[in-house]
Amino acid sequence: MNTMKTDLHHYLRDVREAMVWKLDGLSEHDIRRPLTPTGTNLLGLVKHLAGVELLYFGLVFGRPFAEHVPWLRQDAEPNTDMFATAEESRSDIVGLYQRAWAHADTTIEELPLDTVGHVEWWPGNKTTLHRVLVHVIAEANRHVGHADIVRELVDGAVGLNQGNDFMPAVDKAWWADYHAAVTKVSDGFAQQ
Rank of each mutant, 00 (worst) to 15 (best):
M1D: 07
N2F: 10
T3S: 05
M4F: 13
K5Y: 15
D7I: 07
D7Y: 14
H10Q: 13
L12A: 11
D14W: 05
V15T: 04
R16S: 00
E17N: 04
E17D: 06
A18S: 08
A18M: 07
A18Y: 07
A18W: 08
V20I: 14
K22F: 12
K22N: 13
D24T: 13
S27A: 01
D30P: 03
I31C: 11
R32E: 04
P34S: 03
P34A: 02
T36S: 15
G39L: 04
N41I: 01
L42F: 15
L42E: 12
L43R: 12
G44T: 02
V46R: 12
V46W: 10
V46K: 10
K47D: 02
H48D: 04
L49G: 01
A50Y: 07
A50S: 11
G51K: 09
G51P: 09
E53H: 11
E53Y: 06
L54Q: 09
L55E: 11
F57T: 00
G58I: 04
L59Y: 15
L59I: 10
V60E: 01
G62I: 11
G62E: 14
R63E: 09
P64I: 01
P64W: 09
P64Q: 08
F65V: 00
W71D: 10
W71T: 03
R73P: 00
D75A: 00
E77F: 08
N79L: 07
N79R: 13
T80Y: 04
M82F: 07
R90V: 04
I93E: 11
V94D: 08
V94T: 13
L96N: 04
L96F: 05
Y97S: 01
Q98R: 14
R99V: 07
A102N: 02
H103T: 02
A104I: 06
A104L: 08
I108V: 04
E109G: 06
E109I: 03
E109K: 11
L111I: 05
L113Q: 12
T115W: 10
T115F: 09
V119D: 13
E120N: 12
W121K: 14
G124A: 05
N125L: 01
N125C: 06
N125K: 11
K126R: 15
L129P: 09
H130A: 06
H130R: 11
R131F: 09
V132I: 15
L133T: 04
V134Q: 14
V136F: 07
V136K: 06
I137G: 05
E139C: 00
R142E: 00
H143D: 00
H143T: 00
V144G: 01
G145D: 07
H146I: 02
H146P: 08
A147K: 10
A147E: 09
R151H: 10
R151I: 01
L153P: 12
D155K: 12
D155A: 06
A157I: 09
G159K: 08
N161F: 03
Q162V: 01
G163L: 03
P168T: 11
A169P: 12
D171T: 10
K172C: 04
K172G: 12
W174N: 03
W175C: 05
H179W: 09
A180M: 05
A181I: 01
T183P: 06
T183L: 06
K184Q: 14
K184I: 02
K184L: 09
S186K: 09
D187I: 01
F189L: 06
A190S: 06
A190G: 07
Q192Y: 10
